Amino acid sequence: MLPLALAPLRRLFLGLALLLPAAGCSSGGGSGADDAVEAANAQNAQKIGAADVTEKQEADARFLVKATSNALLEVELGKLAQARATAPAVRAHGAALLQSRLDLLAALRALADAKKLAIPPALGEDEQEAYHEVSAQTGSQLDKHLMALLVKTQNQDEDAFDDMKDDAYDGDIRGLAAKYYQPIKAQLDAAEEAADAAEKLP
């Protein structure tokens, strides 16, 4: 039996899950209508807009979308670091980050499914563009650009998970944020160290 405070959220998701199509899946570019991140946010906005919910419930949905979007990008950047980075510290960070973000993605997908919330199945257009800008680099420039982007996204992760472990409306989302906050914070520290190593390259 759900706590009384969660009952409106449960009714919302159960009632509207049957009415709305699943978010479109797009791993390539295309028009804004095909953007995976925008599609997930739009689907959640439709659900939330059809019921009387709190701003915190809206923030919960946005958090899941952004956390998934960043994790998808970080997985691709981790693969790129392993394949093409020149600095051992950058390659090592890429390998560690890849494994941790695959685990986080699995948890985010399971939670979003349980809450009947949409999350992006692939990189959004902004994330694709950021990835391609990095992947177009070579040698030490790739290391520097890759780590700068990873530090940026991991800072976003650290801030978001820190906030949501205390402020999420849904207890399960608070629990996920609390579980992953410390590993994410430690990985940010490692990213900053790897970025420093990359900046020392010629």
Rank of each mutant, 00 (worst) to 15 (best):
A168C: 06
L176N: 03
A191C: 01
Y180H: 15
Q187V: 07
D189E: 14
D170S: 11
K165D: 06
Y181C: 08
A191E: 01
G171I: 13
A190R: 09
L176C: 07
Y181T: 15
D170N: 13
L188H: 04
G175S: 13
Y181E: 15
D167P: 07
Y180K: 15
A177M: 05
L188R: 03
L188A: 09
P183C: 05
Y169N: 11
Y181V: 12
A191H: 01
A178Q: 12
R174L: 04
E199V: 07
A194T: 02
A191R: 06
L176A: 09
Q187C: 08
K185I: 00
A190K: 11
D172P: 12
Y181F: 15
E192N: 01
P183I: 09
D170Y: 05
P183M: 11
G175F: 11
K165L: 05
A186G: 13
A194D: 09
Q182P: 12
D196C: 08
K165M: 04
A198M: 02
A168T: 08
Q182E: 14
I184A: 11
A198G: 08
K179M: 13
A178I: 10
A186M: 14
E192R: 05
D170F: 10
A177T: 03
Y180C: 13
A197C: 08
R174E: 09
I173G: 01
Y181G: 12
Q187H: 12
Y181N: 15
G171W: 12
E193G: 03
A197V: 03
Y169S: 07
A194L: 01
D189V: 01
Y169R: 08
